[in-house]
Protein backbone atom coordinates (compact mmCIF):
# COMPACT_ATOMS: atom_id res chain seq x y z
CA UNK A 1 0.00 0.00 0.00
CA UNK A 2 1.26 3.42 -0.96
CA UNK A 3 0.41 6.20 1.48
CA UNK A 4 0.89 9.90 0.91
CA UNK A 5 0.32 12.08 3.99
CA UNK A 6 0.23 15.86 3.99
CA UNK A 7 2.85 16.28 1.28
CA UNK A 8 3.82 19.77 0.17
CA UNK A 9 6.29 20.43 -2.60
CA UNK A 10 7.76 23.76 -3.51
CA UNK A 11 9.81 24.67 -6.58
CA UNK A 12 11.51 27.82 -5.40
CA UNK A 13 8.65 30.19 -4.70
CA UNK A 14 6.07 28.14 -6.55
CA UNK A 15 3.93 25.87 -4.38
CA UNK A 16 3.30 22.94 -6.63
CA UNK A 17 1.62 20.72 -3.99
CA UNK A 18 -0.07 21.80 -0.79
CA UNK A 19 -0.95 19.27 1.92
CA UNK A 20 -1.82 16.41 -0.40
CA UNK A 21 -2.85 13.06 1.03
CA UNK A 22 -3.99 9.87 -0.65
CA UNK A 23 -3.89 6.12 -0.25
CA UNK A 24 -3.35 3.66 -3.11
CA UNK A 25 -4.41 0.07 -2.43
CA UNK A 26 -2.63 -3.00 -3.63
CA UNK A 27 -4.15 -4.68 -6.67
CA UNK A 28 -6.10 -1.53 -7.49
CA UNK A 29 -5.74 1.29 -9.93
CA UNK A 30 -5.80 4.73 -8.36
CA UNK A 31 -6.10 7.53 -10.85
CA UNK A 32 -5.01 11.09 -10.26
CA UNK A 33 -6.92 13.61 -12.32
CA UNK A 34 -7.00 17.33 -12.86
CA UNK A 35 -6.22 20.07 -15.31
CA UNK A 36 -2.77 20.93 -16.60
CA UNK A 37 -0.60 22.40 -13.92
CA UNK A 38 -2.69 20.91 -11.12
CA UNK A 39 0.33 19.17 -9.68
CA UNK A 40 -0.24 15.61 -10.90
CA UNK A 41 3.22 15.13 -12.32
CA UNK A 42 4.79 16.69 -9.25
CA UNK A 43 2.94 14.24 -7.07
CA UNK A 44 4.33 11.30 -9.00
CA UNK A 45 7.83 12.77 -8.87
CA UNK A 46 7.50 13.11 -5.11
CA UNK A 47 6.46 9.46 -4.86
CA UNK A 48 9.44 8.23 -6.90
CA UNK A 49 11.99 10.45 -5.19
CA UNK A 50 12.78 12.78 -8.07
CA UNK A 51 11.72 15.67 -5.88
CA UNK A 52 11.74 15.80 -2.09
CA UNK A 53 8.71 17.23 -0.30
CA UNK A 54 9.12 20.15 2.01
CA UNK A 55 6.57 18.61 4.35
CA UNK A 56 4.71 15.38 4.68
CA UNK A 57 5.43 11.67 4.50
CA UNK A 58 5.34 9.04 1.83
CA UNK A 59 5.13 5.44 2.95
CA UNK A 60 5.19 2.26 0.95
CA UNK A 61 4.44 -1.10 2.52
CA UNK A 62 4.99 0.54 5.89
CA UNK A 63 8.48 1.86 4.98
CA UNK A 64 9.05 5.58 4.99
CA UNK A 65 10.39 6.68 1.63
CA UNK A 66 10.31 10.47 1.98
CA UNK A 67 13.65 12.06 1.20
CA UNK A 68 15.28 8.92 -0.12
CA UNK A 69 17.19 8.84 -3.41
CA UNK A 70 15.58 7.62 -6.60
CA UNK A 71 17.73 4.49 -6.62
CA UNK A 72 16.53 3.56 -3.17
CA UNK A 73 12.89 4.12 -4.10
CA UNK A 74 13.33 1.92 -7.16
CA UNK A 75 14.86 -0.76 -5.01
CA UNK A 76 11.90 -0.51 -2.68
CA UNK A 77 9.76 -1.59 -5.64
CA UNK A 78 8.30 1.56 -7.09
CA UNK A 79 8.64 2.02 -10.86
CA UNK A 80 7.88 5.40 -12.37
CA UNK A 81 7.15 5.82 -16.08
CA UNK A 82 7.48 9.56 -16.71
CA UNK A 83 5.45 11.41 -19.27
CA UNK A 84 6.84 11.05 -22.77
CA UNK A 85 10.04 9.46 -21.50
CA UNK A 86 11.35 6.38 -19.85
CA UNK A 87 12.85 4.96 -23.00
CA UNK A 88 16.56 5.18 -23.71
CA UNK A 89 16.83 5.90 -27.42
CA UNK A 90 20.50 4.97 -27.61
CA UNK A 91 19.71 1.40 -26.72
CA UNK A 92 17.71 -1.33 -28.43
CA UNK A 93 14.40 -2.61 -27.13
CA UNK A 94 16.10 -5.60 -25.58
CA UNK A 95 18.84 -3.48 -24.04
CA UNK A 96 16.24 -1.18 -22.53
CA UNK A 97 14.53 -4.14 -20.95
CA UNK A 98 17.82 -5.53 -19.67
CA UNK A 99 18.48 -2.17 -18.11
CA UNK A 100 15.14 -2.25 -16.39
CA UNK A 101 15.73 -5.76 -15.08
CA UNK A 102 19.20 -4.99 -13.72
CA UNK A 103 18.07 -4.63 -10.14
CA UNK A 104 16.82 -8.22 -10.08
CA UNK A 105 20.41 -9.36 -9.76
CA UNK A 106 20.71 -12.81 -11.23
CA UNK A 107 20.98 -13.33 -14.99
CA UNK A 108 18.33 -16.04 -15.01
CA UNK A 109 15.84 -13.83 -13.17
CA UNK A 110 16.54 -11.06 -15.66
CA UNK A 111 16.10 -13.32 -18.66
CA UNK A 112 12.86 -14.72 -17.27
CA UNK A 113 11.24 -11.35 -16.65
CA UNK A 114 12.28 -10.05 -20.04
CA UNK A 115 10.71 -13.06 -21.74
CA UNK A 116 7.48 -12.53 -19.77
CA UNK A 117 7.33 -8.85 -20.55
CA UNK A 118 7.91 -9.46 -24.25
CA UNK A 119 5.02 -11.90 -24.24
CA UNK A 120 2.88 -9.21 -22.77
CA UNK A 121 3.72 -6.83 -25.60
CA UNK A 122 4.15 -8.87 -28.80
CA UNK A 123 5.10 -5.86 -30.96
CA UNK A 124 8.08 -5.33 -28.70
CA UNK A 125 9.07 -8.95 -29.12
CA UNK A 126 9.17 -8.45 -32.87
CA UNK A 127 11.17 -5.24 -32.55
CA UNK A 128 13.53 -6.71 -30.03
CA UNK A 129 16.79 -5.70 -31.65
CA UNK A 130 15.73 -2.38 -33.07
CA UNK A 131 16.95 0.81 -31.57
CA UNK A 132 14.33 2.49 -29.39
CA UNK A 133 14.73 5.63 -31.48
CA UNK A 134 13.14 3.80 -34.42
CA UNK A 135 9.95 2.86 -32.57
CA UNK A 136 6.60 4.53 -33.09
CA UNK A 137 4.93 6.50 -30.30
CA UNK A 138 2.73 3.64 -29.25
CA UNK A 139 5.61 1.18 -29.26
CA UNK A 140 7.70 3.55 -27.20
CA UNK A 141 5.02 3.88 -24.57
CA UNK A 142 4.76 0.12 -24.44
CA UNK A 143 8.51 -0.13 -24.08
CA UNK A 144 8.54 2.40 -21.27
CA UNK A 145 5.91 0.43 -19.37
CA UNK A 146 7.61 -2.85 -20.22
CA UNK A 147 10.90 -1.54 -18.92
CA UNK A 148 9.30 -0.48 -15.70
CA UNK A 149 7.67 -3.89 -15.38
CA UNK A 150 11.01 -5.59 -16.00
CA UNK A 151 12.08 -4.59 -12.50
CA UNK A 152 9.14 -6.62 -11.06
CA UNK A 153 7.87 -3.59 -9.21
CA UNK A 154 5.26 -3.62 -6.52
CA UNK A 155 3.94 -0.24 -7.55
CA UNK A 156 3.73 1.33 -10.98
CA UNK A 157 3.43 5.07 -11.41
CA UNK A 158 2.27 6.11 -14.88
CA UNK A 159 2.25 9.69 -16.07
CA UNK A 160 -0.20 10.24 -18.92
CA UNK A 161 0.54 7.01 -20.80
CA UNK A 162 -2.21 7.65 -23.33
CA UNK A 163 -0.77 10.98 -24.47
CA UNK A 164 -0.48 11.04 -28.23
CA UNK A 165 -1.92 7.56 -28.70
CA UNK A 166 -4.85 6.71 -30.93
CA UNK A 167 -8.10 5.84 -29.05
CA UNK A 168 -7.96 2.20 -30.00
CA UNK A 169 -4.41 2.00 -28.75
CA UNK A 170 -5.33 3.72 -25.52
CA UNK A 171 -8.13 1.23 -25.02
CA UNK A 172 -5.79 -1.71 -25.40
CA UNK A 173 -3.30 -0.10 -23.03
CA UNK A 174 -5.96 0.39 -20.38
CA UNK A 175 -7.00 -3.22 -20.77
CA UNK A 176 -3.44 -4.36 -20.20
CA UNK A 177 -3.16 -2.18 -17.10
CA UNK A 178 -6.36 -3.56 -15.63
CA UNK A 179 -5.19 -7.09 -16.21
CA UNK A 180 -1.80 -6.28 -14.62
CA UNK A 181 -3.28 -4.79 -11.48
CA UNK A 182 -5.40 -7.85 -10.91
CA UNK A 183 -3.07 -10.69 -11.84
CA UNK A 184 0.23 -9.22 -10.64
CA UNK A 185 -1.18 -7.61 -7.50
CA UNK A 186 0.40 -4.40 -8.59
CA UNK A 187 -0.41 -1.03 -7.04
CA UNK A 188 -0.99 1.21 -10.03
CA UNK A 189 -1.18 4.97 -9.84
CA UNK A 190 -2.34 6.44 -13.07
CA UNK A 191 -2.10 10.13 -13.85
CA UNK A 192 -4.31 10.97 -16.78
CA UNK A 193 -5.71 13.91 -18.68
CA UNK A 194 -8.13 11.54 -20.37
CA UNK A 195 -10.33 11.29 -17.29
CA UNK A 196 -13.02 9.24 -18.96
CA UNK A 197 -10.91 6.25 -19.89
CA UNK A 198 -8.95 6.46 -16.63
CA UNK A 199 -12.14 6.34 -14.56
CA UNK A 200 -13.32 3.37 -16.58
CA UNK A 201 -10.54 1.16 -15.25
CA UNK A 202 -9.69 2.72 -11.90
CA UNK A 203 -11.03 1.73 -8.51
CA UNK A 204 -10.31 5.01 -6.74
CA UNK A 205 -9.76 8.52 -7.98
CA UNK A 206 -8.19 11.70 -6.66
CA UNK A 207 -8.76 15.09 -8.25
CA UNK A 208 -6.12 17.80 -7.88
CA UNK A 209 -6.59 21.48 -8.53
CA UNK A 210 -3.84 24.07 -8.07
CA UNK A 211 -1.80 21.70 -5.96
CA UNK A 212 -4.59 20.66 -3.60
CA UNK A 213 -6.88 17.69 -3.40
CA UNK A 214 -10.41 18.76 -4.21
CA UNK A 215 -12.02 15.35 -4.38
CA UNK A 216 -11.12 11.79 -3.43
CA UNK A 217 -13.55 8.91 -3.78
CA UNK A 218 -14.21 5.66 -5.59
CA UNK A 219 -13.95 5.99 -9.33
CA UNK A 220 -17.61 5.19 -9.91
CA UNK A 221 -18.79 7.80 -7.41
CA UNK A 222 -16.59 10.43 -8.97
CA UNK A 223 -17.71 9.54 -12.45
CA UNK A 224 -21.33 9.93 -11.32
CA UNK A 225 -20.74 13.40 -9.87
CA UNK A 226 -21.58 15.47 -12.92
CA UNK A 227 -20.85 18.79 -11.22
CA UNK A 228 -17.35 17.75 -10.36
CA UNK A 229 -16.81 16.32 -13.79
CA UNK A 230 -17.81 19.53 -15.51
CA UNK A 231 -15.86 21.71 -13.15
CA UNK A 232 -12.55 19.92 -12.97
CA UNK A 233 -12.49 17.16 -15.52
CA UNK A 234 -14.01 18.76 -18.58
CA UNK A 235 -16.73 16.24 -19.40
Amino acid sequence: MLEVEGVSVQYGAVRALEDVSLTAEVGAITTILGANGAGKTTLLRAMSGLVHPRRGTIRFDGRVLTGRSVEQVVRAGIAHVPEGRGVIEELTVEENLRLGSLILGSRSAQKAVIAEVLELFPPLRDARNRYASSLSGGERQMLAIARALASRPKALLLDEPSLGLAPIVTARLMAVLRELSRSASLTIILVEQNARSALSIAQSAVVLNLGRVVAADTASSLAADTNLRHHYLGF
Binding site: V74, H80, V81, E89, G100, I103
Partner: peptide, 13 residues
Protein backbone atom coordinates in the same frame (compact mmCIF):
# COMPACT_ATOMS: atom_id res chain seq x y z
CA UNK B 1 21.49 5.37 -20.71
CA UNK B 2 22.94 8.11 -18.51
CA UNK B 3 24.08 9.98 -21.56
CA UNK B 4 20.71 9.79 -23.21
CA UNK B 5 18.43 10.69 -20.29
CA UNK B 6 19.66 10.96 -16.74
CA UNK B 7 16.17 11.05 -15.27
CA UNK B 8 14.98 7.99 -17.13
CA UNK B 9 18.19 6.21 -16.23
CA UNK B 10 17.78 6.97 -12.54
CA UNK B 11 14.15 5.84 -12.68
CA UNK B 12 15.42 2.58 -14.08
CA UNK B 13 17.42 2.15 -10.92
Amino acid sequence: AVRDDEVAASLAG
